[in-house]
Design a protein around this nucleic acid. Structure first.
Lengths: 231, 231
DNA sequence: GCAAAAGTGTTTGGATTACACCCATGC
DNA sequence: GCATGGGTGTAATCCAAACACTTTTGC
């Protein structure tokens, strides 16, 4: 058992990678950036940055998300932490993954100083990434799948007003299964949704009704009763 | 948006806290140490240490567990990472929590150089701890509870050979509920258990049969079929 | 009318629940 | 015999899966 003076340990760096998920065309997408700087210049990567000395981890995650998307007030979820001694070529950098769920339609992303280019890629079609980012992405997507089953976070990915079929497609894509329409609707019956009079537009078939998540009613349910969201 | 030279960021320290859970007398216990050193000298804490420069996080977690218990080959589970800028009085120390599940009966713990004293405490009776360790413990216990429902890790806490009642007590303590004996047994029927001829000893009532987890059979089930452990 | 997808009802079998009862052991 | 938990069966109910059917829109 070796001992080193406490001060000699202040030799590490700590970064944070923000996996940003969105939903589009029935597919869960992830936001990738093309690195403008070495190392791994010109490779696709998950947006991330070093954590500043005065920042809590969640603040850093919020900052990174804001710099890239100008979005505020997005709930962030901590995922796994990765610290292999050789994972960063320039030193000992330990990184925590966070993920955010956003509505792709509600904003557009611009490349920033640390990225030349930015794009959305369906999770199941992600190319080889810089660093250990494929590992990070996969483990974070697994966590997303788990949280989708016991927290109502699918509604952070869906448009504010969505059709039940869009909701079904989200789960079908995430879990790689096909579901029965009638049974899916029965299953989500306990989830508090607001049914709007509004209908889908510009479709060449019967337009679907639009729904939104009733978060007030959800809060009441979880607070008072023995209700538990479940998919 | 401020920028700092990359090198100025190698100023952090990284530690790891190992929450060690055990099961005894129908209660899930956690191993606490009494700190021998400042800061928080003489307060109870979760065992932890700085991560050495050549260690992966999981190696550090294994080392800490081994130093304290001499146990090897225990599966470690990563939990949350905590990095509030002020969480450590002596500098910027970010910490990841890991948890391990052990059989209390199979070894005994000795205090090490960094702890004067060591004790097992039922999770629901933990006193005020050093640093943000209550926060760490609570979030880690929540994760344990989740994993108990979808992975067969209860068998890492139970004795190698256990009674069905012990197993039931574990879940009852974890989730704070009472369960019906007959229904519990029906629920666990899909879990591959080996039923031994052996019986409980030294009890003043009808002795219970002993069971053990059939991990080979479990591996086959998860590999081939669409089996999913569930509690 | 036809294609395409929206939307709903019925049947069936398996799981969950509540509850009752019998069994084996120590004292 | 009796106290204590071990161990099991039954009936009612709920839930999920499979599947069929009707409705509404665009063209």
């Amino acid at each position: 058992m070796y001992k080193i003076a406490f001060d000699d340990f202040f030799n590490y760096s700590f970064s944070l990678d923000s996996v940003i998920f969105g939903f589009r065309n029935g597919e869960i997408n992830v936001l990738l950036i093309k690195r403008a700087l070495e190392p791994f210049k010109n490779m696709w990567a998950i947006p991330g940055d070093l954590v500043y000395p005065d920042e809590d981890l969640s603040n850093a995650a919020e900052r990174i998300l804001f710099e890239l998307t100008k979005l505020n007030n997005v709930e962030l979820h901590q995922a796994q932490t990765f610290g292999h001694p050789k994972r960063h070529p320039q030193g000992r950098v330990i990184t925590s993954a966070y993920f955010a769920l956003v509505r792709i339609e509600e904003f557009h992303v611009e490349a920033s100083s640390w990225a030349e280019e930015v794009k959305w890629v369906p999770v199941h079609e992600v190319p080889e990434l810089a660093f250990d980012h494929n590992l990070i992405l996969n483990s974070t997507f697994e966590l997303l799948k788990k949280k989708l089953t016991y927290e109502p976070i699918c509604f952070d990915l869906l448009p504010k007003r969505f059709t039940l079929n869009e909701m079904q497609q989200l789960f079908e894509y995430a879990f790689g299964v096909e579901m029965d329409k009638a049974n899916f609707r029965k299953k989500i019956r306990p989830i508090p949704l607001i049914s709007h009079d509004e209908k889908q537009m510009n479709v060449k078939h019967r337009p679907a009704k639009l729904f939104s998540f009733n978060s007030e009613s959800y809060e009441e349910l979880t607070a008072k009763e023995s209700y538990q969201f479940k998919m």
